[in-house]
């Protein structure tokens, strides 16, 4: 199978791109796929923290592009799963350091040893975000059920359709999926939050998954663990469902009812 390049993008910042990139990559690795997750956010490196490998970064994306390091010197092998690798970005302030030709060369090299290349895009629609989505075969649009996030997602979907490599070369269009994150069924029930169907109808993009707002996401980032490794957390299971759908499986949406906490849990327990 030829390697698939998947970008997680959103336009808006703070919607959960890096969390989702880490979770999707780890989920694909758990399913036996050789997976690398690549940080495209030059200058604001954070994927290493979310993946829990921040102290193992020696070389980065820019070093490899400039030929100062080999790819396998910069790739960090995950300690929890043998199929999973992290490719950290650089902390340089030169945001334009990711030249398209260099990125293409590195991606081509990674295609030879991986099944999935997950690209974690920076926010915005500037150079870095465009570079992250340019080579994508598949795009996962990370969206919160909130007006500014939905609007920016629409903008990014438009850019994928016009500025990606596939669009510029008249190839089959980038396969676009919607990942709705920080979803709160209780607030939807009260009429305080856009519902799944609202967002689906407005963006008219197929839904890959719905991740419920969950305390486990912050706990996972605190400890540098992709949330899918947290067995039993609703968010982790919802991400694993999304990964299943990405692999072509039919899976029912879950965690769409407000969580009713039992009296004992409220007193003693954690979510």
């Amino acid at each position: 199978m030829p390697a698939k390049v998947i970008v997680l993008t959103s336009g808006k910042g703070g919607v959960g791109k890096t969390t989702s990139a880490a979770a999707v990559a780890a989920g694909l690795a758990l399913r036996g796929n050789r997976t690398v997750v690549v940080d495209f956010d030059v200058g604001l490196r954070n994927l290493d923290l979310i993946m829990g490998c921040e102290r193992r970064v020696v070389f980065d994306f820019i070093n490899v592009i400039n030929g100062d390091a080999k790819l396998n010197q910069a790739l960090i092998k995950d300690r929890r799963n043998d199929n999973l690798y992290v490719f950290p970005t650089s902390q340089t302030r030169d945001k334009d350091a990711l030249k398209r030709e260099g990125v293409e060369r590195v991606l081509d090299e990674m295609r030879e040893s991986f099944d999935y290349i997950i690209c974690d895009s920076p926010a915005g629609i500037e150079h870095g975000a465009i570079t992250a989505l340019y080579f994508a075969d598949t795009a996962i649009i990370v969206t919160n059920p909130e007006v500014s996030s939905v609007r920016d997602s629409d903008r990014i979907i438009g850019i994928l359709a016009s500025k990606s490599r596939r669009a510029e070369n008249n190839m089959d269009p980038v396969e676009v999926h919607l990942l709705l994150t920080r979803y709160s069924p209780a607030r939807v029930e009260k009429g305080e939050m856009l519902a799944i169907d609202d967002v689906k109808e407005i963006l008219s993009v197929p839904l890959l998954g719905v991740i419920p707002e969950s305390e486990s996401v912050l706990r996972a980032s605190n400890t540098g663990t992709p949330v899918v490794f947290d067995d039993g957390s609703p968010a982790g299971q919802a991400y694993l469902d999304a990964v299943g759908r990405l692999l072509g499986e039919q899976r029912e949406l879950r965690f769409l009812r407000p969580e009713r906490r039992s009296f004992f849990r409220t007193l003693f327990g954690r979510a």
Partner: peptide, 17 residues
């Protein structure tokens, strides 16, 4: 308020598209 958000988004996105 979710219904208001939905209607505002539909209008603004129609213009922007």
């Amino acid at each position: 308020t979710a219904a208001i958000a939905r209607d505002r988004l539909k209008i603004v996105l129609a213009h922007e598209r």
